[in-house]
Design a protein around this nucleic acid. Sequence first.
DNA 1: ATAGGGTTAG
Length: 818
Amino acid sequence: MEMAAVTPSQCPCNFLVEPTMPITVQFKRGKISGSISNLPAFPGASSGFRTLRCSPHHSPSLVDNGENCHKASKKENVSRELLHSTSWDVPCAVLPVGTVSGVPKVNAELTGLLEAIGHCTDIKQLKQIHAHMLRTSLFFDPFATSKLITASALSLFSSLSYAHKVFKQIQHPNLYTWNTLIRAYASSSDPTQSLLIFLEMLYSCPEFPNKFSYPFVIKAASVLKALKFGRVLHGMAIKASLGSDLFILNSLVHFYGSCKDLDLAHRVFTKIQRKDVVSWNSLINAFTQGGSPEGALHLFKEMEVNNVKPNNITMVGVLSACTKMLDLEFGSWICSYIKRNDLSVDLTLNNAMLDMYIKCGRIEDAKKIFNEMPEKDIVSWTTMIDGYAKLGSYDQARLVFCAMPHQETAAWNALISAYEQNGKPKEALSLFHELQHSTIAKPNEVTLVCALSACAQLGAMDLGGWIHVYTKKHGIKLNCHLTTSLIDMYAKCGDLDKALEVFYSVEQKDVYVWSAMIAGLAMHGCGRAALDLFSRMLEDDVIPNGVTFTNVLCACSHAGLVNEGKYIFNQMESLYGVVPGVKHYACMVDILGRAGLLDEAVALIEKMPILPSASVWGALLGACRLHGSVELAEQACNSLLELDPGNHGAYVLLSNMYAKAGKWDSVSHLRKLMRDSGLKKEPGCSLIEVKGIVYDFFVGDNSHPFSQKIYSKLDEILVRLKSIGYEPNKSQVLQLVEEDDLMEHALNLHSEKLAIAFGLISIEASQPIRIVKNLRVCGDCHSVAKLISGLYDREILLRDRYRFHHFRGGKCSCMDYW
DNA sequence: ATAGGGTTAG
């Protein structure tokens, strides 16, 4: 092959030409940018680029015309910046013009070069070869450049941005080269690039995508859950007569599974002529991940019937299904099946078995596997840590943590999240502080999400705010998880404005972000605003899920919006396909019950297609208290205690109702019952954060260093309140059982009162006093807080178990409706 | 010359 020397004008990238000898490698910082919308129509498309969208003509025949197609997620939006700028240096311009006028001995050199590429062990060596190729015109050999791309995109030392820049230097990349880049990006951190490069290839590569191109690009679509895009790919593959390629079909099964479209996944699967083990694995995993583990197990059995031999990957999927169903029996059977059939057990499979035993409560079996594992990775360790933590064996969890060879961030996260999720937020935060002193690990997004959640539980807004600042300072972009946690933290700490500020400051809002904001508004009693936000969310084409509806209904309940609640509840399934769960029913019972529609609430419970949970009966019980229906309360209480015998609150509520009705016999009977059952109540506890430290107060607490001052402040308060006509709410004395069994007369010792008194002496008057209480606020404390807010002109934010009470100027945001 | 399927934590 004749090859001319490259002159500047021919150089594909218009790089500077350096005319000096010996050869020096110049680096140029390049920024590649552009947008997919700049791409002209690709050849063969009748109406340009638009046909790439989900149009009936390009849709696979088995798919209907898009009615079932879910709204596109933002990730599918390919019209965004084509490529990130990168900081990789690419050799260029190494042609000493005029000195390499002769044609290099391409063939001889080529062989050596290809070998050299194969022997590269780092990017530096590769760059040297790259430079050499540019110098000798070998860069014009398609085979050689392909190898170069492969090495830079897929080897151990690979750098995708480097590969991409090399790619840009190639004048006519061949299909193989395109495929390589698409493949590399599919499993990178930025799979959107795969889709973009695929589109670019359609336009600028003379060859059509082949049977290799599709699996790569479909994989990228799977990661992105780009349902529309993937459907178009499916259609294109069929048009290209590749519709029966096993690899492509398997990719598609996996793809539809990733998009949670089990129906389509299954339909593609049934069209596969000769299903192999990968086909089955893809579908089994689609069912496992897509919320139908039962289906996955069924498929596994069917697979056996069809004489397809399962492999280790099958077992991972099936075990994962058992784990999701907490089916220990089947899970153990699988473990023995693996042994019996001598399947190869690798790290992932061991981890899957580990996880199954742990989730099914068999820590000893898990431990045995763990100890015998020849190789452990971060997943193995964190699974064990989490297992112990979930059992409350924190010492064991810590022991495993300490035994780890590297305490990477993920390990810290396992421990922190375990504490945070098991009601130990203080411990979680103290670990978070410990982590900040670690030299090995640094907090990452996950850590911050856990820490924020712990802050939210404690009402620790100073620390929560500090974490917010931390993200800004360290340039940590707010992903949806972080945004959700921040909104939740600010809302639960009582700063609704800050929560809204975060909400409006971010561009990316997924359904969880919206739902968190709706929940925030709901807990602050802004029911209307929550509903408005819900409408805006729908206008924004965000599809609501079960969480969203729980929050929306909760908003209705706190604001007494009965008709709105009913309306939305009725639309859930019919319009949005969200089957009402037990939480939604509980909300509805609450909405109806509060409004006094007790009969309607009972009727709803009676026609529930699922078993009512304790929370449903609890809601009814609460409504009975509000409306003084003792008989119904007895029924509700019985049903509740059947499901949740340790529910102290139910006894208290009923006993208070008996007391109010003067049924003292029943009161003492109930109390005896409680004593006999050895029921321990959750002690009332109020938290208050002062200067970054969270203080907790229990009833009659005098452990605080300023205890003396707090009690004298409390005395002062009560004197002042009485002077303006306050009388302790005697009826609330009856509720003392909820606060403390022994000190019936000690209304004044309620933890929230202590916390308020402490707040008054230790927090500047300009700042609100924020308190978090673990139980529902009692009526007397509620009136006292109202009075204090007026008398002392202080803002008090009290979060109780159910909602926020925002006291200001003698009034409460709940309008005494809680 | 190239391919498809897997585990944990938010």
